[in-house]
Structure formats: structure tokens, C-alpha cells
């Protein structure tokens, strides 16, 4: 059932930092091979959720499973199944781009680490820069390397925390292409983003995390239907996801 079913399953997940309750009962299911976008304002708890799913943080309550492994009790199984690209680039500045890739490939215990590194450099247009130290990379190159490092070994589930923040339009398209490629190859992708158009273009399903809970969760079309009819008639175009997001989030506060 799990093979065909959800790659990520989260039920009633709670997490507080001291007095601040960040997640207050989060439920999501992410189907295998799909792209799931998690939207939320600054401080909504997106990174916190991703860190719990990638075994970096412990939840206070609730359950979370990744690839059939419980994130609390079977952390090693989860780590075998996932790869994390955190919100801030986690690359070694002193090593070259290629050395960074070879290092993660070895740490994933893969054979032919060199070949894998060269292949990833090519996929992310970093072949030229591969022999240079990362300290000399631009922000966009660093981000691309960071994502490339997560793909070594083709883990079945990938978390991308704001993968395109700081990238130029071309870099964004490159990342989008890579994400689509992953999903078509059967990889499950959970990404967080501030760019609503990114979710709109990429995701099979979109969830909005707000005040510690999942406010809505559905396909783009399902989310569009949530807007009151009057507004739909008023605007000429179909509402963008941004309209939906703002209406829901600000509507909630009032």
C-alpha cells in the first residue's frame, strides 16, 4: 500500500520553540512521484516542517513518515530515502564545486563518485566552474551546486526549502526543469516557496501553511474554486494563485 500510496505522510504534527507554538497539528499526504508545494508567509513554519521531515528536528507530537519510515523511530531509514536542500546553501566554500559533489557522492556510499559529479555538473551548467572554489561562485551558482549535491544517488524523496530564492529568471527555469525531470523519473519532491507563481507552474498539489495549520491543500484548480464567485467575475483573467493566497491569508486574520 505504501509503495503506491503516500511517500510523505504527516498527521497531527506539533512543534513549539519555548512558548512559541509553530506547528499546531499539521496533516499532509504527498503522493509518490508528485511535486508538492508548501506555501506560507515568513515564519509560518515551513522550514521547521522540512527539518522535522529530514530528521534534523524532533516533533513534540503527531506522526510523520517518509518513504514508509517513521522520522522519529526510523531516522536512519528516512536518511537513506531523502535528500535535503536547506533554505541556505550548504556547500563547502573552500572546496571546488566538483569536490563538493564527489564528497556527497562518497558520503552516500556510491561507486563512481567522479562520474556522478561530472554528470551533475553538466546537468546544472557548472562544468566550466567545476574546478573552481565555491567561494568564487555567484549566489546562483552556489544554489545550483547546492541542489545538485542533493541529487547524488537519486534518493526517492527530495526536500527543497525555497530552492529558487536568490536565483535569476534563467537559474529559476533551470531549477524548475530539474524538479520536473525528477518528478517524471518518479522522485517525490516537497518544496517550499515564497514565489506563488513557482507553485503555480511546478506543483501537482499546493498546501498553504498558516498559523500552524494547513489552511488549504489541493490542486491549483481546486484552490482557484475557493475564491468567492463575485471576485472571479470582477477580474478579467482567471485568479492567480497569488490572489488566492492573499485572500485566504488576510481573510483569516480579519
Amino acid at each position: 500500500m505504501d509503495r503506491a500510496g503516500a511517500a510523505i505522510r504527516v498527521q497531527g504534527l506539533e512543534k513549539s520553540f519555548g512558548q512559541v507554538s509553530v506547528l499546531r497539528g499539521v496533516d499532509i499526504d504527498v503522493a509518490r512521484g508528485s511535486i508538492f508545494a508548501l506555501l506560507g508567509s515568513n515564519g509560518a513554519g515551513k522550514t521547521t516542517l522540512v527539518k522535522i521531515l529530514s530528521t534534523l528536528l524532533k516533533a513534540d507530537a503527531g506522526r510523520a513518515e517518509v518513504n514508509g519510515f517513521d522520522v522519529g523511530r526510523q531516522a536512519a531509514g528516512v536518511r537513506e530515502s531523502i535528500s535535503l536542500t536547506g533554505q541556505f546553501a550548504a556547500v563547502d566554500e573552500i572546496l571546488t564545486g566538483r569536490e563538493n559533489l564527489v564528497m556527497v557522492a562518497r558520503l552516500r556510499h556510491l561507486k563512481n563518485a567522479g562520474t556522478i559529479a561530472d554528470d551533475l555538473l553538466r546537468r546544472f551548467s557548472l562544468t566550466e566552474a567545476g574546478a573552481r572554489r565555491v567561494a568564487a561562485y555567484s549566489g546562483g551558482m552556489r544554489r545550483r551546486l547546492d541542489i545538485a549535491m542533493s541529487l547524488a544517488g537519486n534518493p526517492p524523496v527530495i526536500f527543497l526549502d525555497e530552492p529558487t530564492t536568490g536565483l535569476d529568471p534563467e537559474g529559476r527555469l533551470e531549477v524548475w526543469r530539474a524538479v520536473r525531470e525528477l518528478a517524471s523519473g518518479g522522485t517525490t519532491v516537497l518544496l517550499t516557496t515564497q514565489h506563488l507563481d513557482e507553485a503555480e507552474h511546478l506543483a501537482d498539489r499546493i498546501a498553504i501553511l498558516h498559523e500552524g495549520r494547513i489552511l488549504v491543500n489541493g490542486t491549483l484548480d481546486e484552490l482557484r474554486k475557493l475564491l468567492p464567485q463575485a471576485t472571479v467575475e470582477y477580474v478579467e483573467k482567471r485568479p492567480t494563485l497569488e490572489d488566492v493566497f492573499l485572500a485566504l491569508v488576510t481573510g483569516e486574520k480579519r
Partner: peptide, 13 residues
């Protein structure tokens, strides 16, 4: 500080 520690911690090492 740099986040590479978290990358290592999320890997099967």
C-alpha cells in the same frame, strides 16, 4: 553555522 553540518546530519552517514 554554514548549514553543511545539517546537510551531513540529514545524510545516511
Amino acid at each position: 553555522q554554514g548549514g553543511i553540518f545539517e546537510r551531513f546530519q540529514s545524510m545516511p552517514i
